[in-house]
Design a protein around this nucleic acid. Structure first.
Length: 339
DNA sequence: CGCAGCGA
DNA sequence: TCGCTGCGG
């Protein structure tokens, strides 16, 4: 999570502004867990806690995903959600540390809510851990009612998502970090806000363009990422930021050469080549089905309105717009023609 | 996050 | 019609 390629992308003038209208008829892939986190981090009630239904069950993620997906459908854009599988052993240590940190923040977050310190609650809640099986299952249920395909990744969702784009089954990944590009997704879209905001425009980055402008091979991009630090070698190398890392890869051609010449020292248990392989050929599956459906209006009202206390007026309005957008763009066969 | 309701 | 703010559950 969070390979720091932003500085270089900016330096080389990469990324083109993209208007959401331009994505009409296209399919985008998202990392489901990241999306749930993002919604929980930003959608809060007046006390800084999440939105909840009358039984106290969290609904922020449902509100966020429902609004977003209805809006996307109204624009004629379809999504695929990819869920993480069990983490690779090599990633366990980072995840464990991240988990402990997030649990600490979660405790502090609940405390702040109780004390009525709203600002602090909102801040802490962005860093806390709260994705439970219940939240995941609720999300899957909503997605299936909306006719949005769900893909189960064998391990890393981002890697599976990149594979889906590579195979031509989607146009791009929408993401907040650069990992998908290193995983070989031909296109990624960043800073994605559906509402047109001239200050925060969506940017499309094309892998081939990235490699061409930086004059790197895919392998060298991966080596560059490893220099900057990945989930498999967190932190990267002390004193080596984006600019230095790039210079070093251009000069030495590969991570191996850098190590051979003693320019840097490898401090992790795992071998560099193992990490390289995980980005080059990550464990993914082609046993996934992408079938888009039409939102099940009755089922959604039952789920959101009756079970989770959504306003029927809002839900119906959203759905009407979504259905109108889908009608305009047609069925799946038509969607694929837009590539 | 995305929307609705409001005032300029 | 636009930009801002606060609400949604």
């Amino acid at each position: 999570m969070g390979i720091q390629l932003g500085v270089l992308a900016k330096q080389f003038g990469l990324g083109r502004l993209i208007n959401p209208e331009k994505l009409r008829g296209k399919i985008i892939v998202v990392d489901a867990l990241v999306t749930i986190y993002q919604m929980l981090a930003t959608i809060r009630g007046p006390d800084g806690y999440f939105l909840v239904d009358s039984k106290g069950r969290i609904t922020s993620h449902l509100v966020g995903i429902f609004n977003r997906e209805c809006r996307l459908m109204s624009l004629g854009i379809r999504s695929i959600y990819v869920f993480d599988g069990p983490p690779l052993e090599i990633k366990l240590r980072v995840l464990q540390r991240r988990r402990e940190e997030k649990e600490k923040f979660y405790g502090q977050f609940l405390e702040a809510v109780k004390k009525g310190d709203v600002d602090r609650a909102i801040k802490l809640g962005k860093r806390a851990m709260f994705v439970t099986d219940e939240l995941i299952n609720q999300t899957k249920k909503l997605l299936s009612l909306l006719g949005i395909p769900v893909v189960q990744a064998p391990h890393d969702a981002e890697a599976q998502a990149a594979y889906i784009v590579k195979e031509g089954n989607a146009y791009a990944i929408t993401t907040r970090d650069w990992d998908a590009l290193v995983y070989g997704s031909p296109r990624i879209i960043m800073h994605w806000k559906i509402i047109h905001d001239p200050y925060l425009p969506a940017k499309l980055y094309i892998l081939d363009e990235f490699l061409e402008k930086l004059r790197l091979t895919r392998e060298q991009l991966i080596d560059l990422a490893i220099l900057l630090g990945t989930d498999f070698n967190p932190g990267g190398f002390k004193g080596i930021g984006p600019k230095t890392a790039y210079k070093l890869i251009r000069m030495y051609r590969s991570l191996d050469n850098l190590l051979k010449h003693g320019r840097i020292k490898w401090i992790w248990d795992v071998e560099p080549d193992e990490i390289r392989q995980l980005f080059l050929n990550p464990p993914v599956t082609d046993k996934y089905e992408i079938e888009f459906g039409t939102p099940d209006e009755e089922g959604i009202i039952e789920f959101l309105v009756e079970e989770h206390d959504f306003s029927p007026r809002r839900v119906k309005n959203r759905l009407k717009e979504a259905l109108r957008g889908l009608h305009r763009v047609g069925k799946q066969a038509d969607l694929m023609k837009f590539f």
